[in-house]
Design a protein around this nucleic acid. Structure first.
Length: 616
DNA sequence: GGTGCGTTCCTTTTT
DNA sequence: GGAACGCACC
């Protein structure tokens, strides 16, 4: 293996890291990197992974553990590292979610828990109805607030610290109740608590985790909950493992869901971490960066040093505020603007329609309007994680090969992944390889011959047959996440139905797959879903009081949400206000409560306001 | 059939 | 926050 000496390491793929980013990438101390949108936090982590692996500062066979919140983010980071330093080194880079990390620990060491804290090995993931039932079995009348409090219980269960009611419900969920035919059912919060308890009380497990991971990355650190932080602390505080946390307090939009308000301060104090700030914004055009900077004041930060990337011209960046009378008017202007931008060369999947909440309420009128000009827009929440699933990627690849034989990349991918499933390694003999290739060819030709199905049911059956041909047991063996067979079946069934929906509209398989992957459609999503993403053009629909119904109670968090929306845009952002929007609460919209956003626009001198309310 | 109280909606993640 | 529902009670 060719190792690079630390002093000779340079960022991979010609990336230029600003000074503080470079320092962080090669640091051997705990650190907190605070950086705004577009500063390249993910790239920094990817480069740091390359540095640690290529120089062997992360000494073989030790590993890097990267923890994210969403599977989407975890797999993006892994892909980035693989791209930068290759598959082989990346085997020592484990990127996973907090919940996956905790669940792995619990499942692996479940028998080390004391008997009165030990769930059944085949426990289920608890749903809200299960929590309710657990309280009832334990003899309490359920109240919705109880469910939220159950994750706050610390272990071991102790009646001097925790009310008896919660202890009883915990026990029921944990151990089950035979006479009520109620098995172990754990929430992910409980799983984290149990994992933390295991590590805290068992030196062997704690040491082995610390030995395995010499370096730990914590992504989106501003959103870390108390439970997650406790887990990290119990695992790594006082160890030799080096932690790197990256985050942005201006994008702290998860406090309502339990993010720990003081996590930056607590972490720097407890882990003696040095704090570094990045000042570049590589994403947004200069005039958009100016608007973002105008917001820093109300977010209690100083943005004076923030710089846009030099690839832009200073006059780049467009922002509009459009005022409408009716939703019909709003939809039709948005349709016009989307068509115009598309004709000017901006791809549909480089545009995004953002809402504060309720994608259907704010987006369905626009979807219908766009349909009239054959432009697709879809609720991306349905697809975001779905398309990241291994089994979905495999099925798509099989379909692509069945539709278009001359796609070498898809063929290579399929060879590799099905080869992995069927245990065909690089060292396989010629005969094995030949029969494997012929098996795969037959699979594809067979599918190709059957693609002329005419009903949904036939198509679902076809997909099920395909799953049998690939072999479900082998898929499960290769991807343990599918050992929950119900989960796998649901994914495959959803795949068949969604793909059929798409095909039913076009009757053209090439377009169907392309559309399914979202290559020709505009995603619609909430601000929360958009975090971490970027688009050439953003349409933020509904800059109205009722969309920010909680503003009075959590102004700081809603300002952050507004900032996140604004900072997704690379080239242009359009905000809309519609006086006549029908929501659950009212049909007359105002912007009194969130008027400060309108003031920022006015003061910036950059946002062009267009009033359509007097037009037909 | 009036009143008053409680609850739900509304932003998230996880195999 | 602010509308709307279910409900227990008189």
């Amino acid at each position: 293996m060719n190792r690079i000496h630390p002093s000779e390491w340079v960022p991979v793929d010609g990336f230029e890291l600003e000074a503080e980013a470079m320092t962080s990438a090669i640091s051997d101390e705990n650190s907190l990197v605070v950086a705004g949108p577009g500063a390249g936090k993910t790239e920094l982590l990817a480069q740091r992974a390359c540095y640690l692996l290529q120089t062997n500062e992360c000494k073989y066979p030790k590993k890097i553990l990267a923890i994210s919140f969403k599977r989407d983010a975890a797999s993006n980071l892994k892909e980035r590292v693989e791209l930068r330093c290759g598959k082989e080194l990346t085997t020592r880079f484990e990127s996973k979610t907090y919940d996956a990390f905790a669940k792995e620990i619990l499942d692996r060491f479940i028998h080390s828990l004391p008997n009165n804290h030990q769930p059944q090995k085949n426990y289920d993931i608890a749903e809200i109805a299960d929590i309710k039932k657990a309280f009832e079995i334990s003899g309490y009348q359920y109240n919705k607030q109880y469910g939220a409090k159950i994750g706050k219980v610390t272990l071991p269960l102790d009646s001097t610290l925790t009310a008896q009611m919660y202890i009883d419900a915990w026990r029921t969920l944990l151990i089950g109740n035979t006479s009520a035919e109620f098995g172990s059912k754990l929430t992910f919060e409980m799983i984290s608590r149990l994992a933390e308890y295991l590590i805290r009380t068992n030196d062997f497990i704690r040491k082995s985790i610390q030995m395995t991971y010499s370096h730990v990355f914590l992504d989106e650190f501003q959103d870390t909950t108390t439970i997650q932080y406790d887990l990290v602390k119990t695992c790594f505080l006082g160890s030799n493992s080096v932690l790197t946390a990256v985050g942005d307090s201006k994008q702290r939009i998860m406090l309502w869901a339990g993010a720990k308000r003081t996590v930056f301060e607590d972490y720097t104090a407890e882990f003696c971490a040095s704090r570094r700030e990045l000042i570049m914004n590589h994403r947004s055009a200069p005039r958009l960066v100016e608007i973002q900077k105008a917001l820093y004041g109300s977010l209690n930060e100083d943005g004076s040093s923030i710089l846009a990337n030099r690839r832009w011209n200073v006059e780049d960046g467009l922002a509009f505020l459009r005022l409408f009378r009716s939703q019909e008017q709003e939809a039709s202007i948005i349709r016009e603007e989307i068509c115009k931008a598309n004709q000017e060369g901006i791809k549909l999947n480089e545009m995004c329609i953002l809402v504060k909440q309720q994608v259907d309420v704010y987006g369905s009128g626009i979807i219908d309007e766009l349909k009239t000009v054959n432009i697709k827009a879809r609720n991306e929440a349905v697809y975001q994680d779905f398309l990241k699933e291994e089994i979905i990627k495999i099925l798509i690849a099989v379909f692509k090969n069945a539709i278009n034989e001359q796609s070498p990349e898809e063929w290579t991918y399929l060879l590799e992944i099905i080869g992995e499933i069927r245990g065909i390694g690089v060292d396989a003999d010629a005969h094995t390889v030949r029969s494997f290739v012929s098996y795969l060819n037959n699979l594809i030709i067979d599918l190709k011959n059957k693609l002329n199905v005419v009903t949904r049911d036939d198509f679902i059956y076809l997909v099920e047959l395909l799953m049998e041909q690939i072999s479900k047991p082998l898929i499960i063996a290769a991807f343990p996440q599918y050992s929950n067979i119900k989960y796998l079946d649901k994914l495959v069934n959803d795949f068949a139905n969604l793909l059929w929906d798409e095909y039913d509209g076009t009757k053209d398989w090439i377009n169907t797959i392309d559309n399914f992957e979202g290559n020709n459609s505009i995603p619609i999503m909430t601000i929360h879903k958009s975090k971490g993403l970027e688009f050439d053009m953003i349409f933020f629909v509904g800059l109205e009081d009722s969309a920010f119904w909680n503003f009075r109670r959590q102004p700081g968090e809603d300002r952050c949400a507004f900032f996140v929306a604004l900072s997704r845009a690379k080239k242009r952002i359009d905000f809309t206000f519609c006086a006549g929007r029908e929501t659950r609460f009212t049909s007359v919209q105002k912007h009194e409560v969130i008027n400060e956003f309108y003031q920022v626009f006015k003061n910036s001198g950059i946002v062009e306001q267009i009033d359509y309310t007097s037009l037909y």
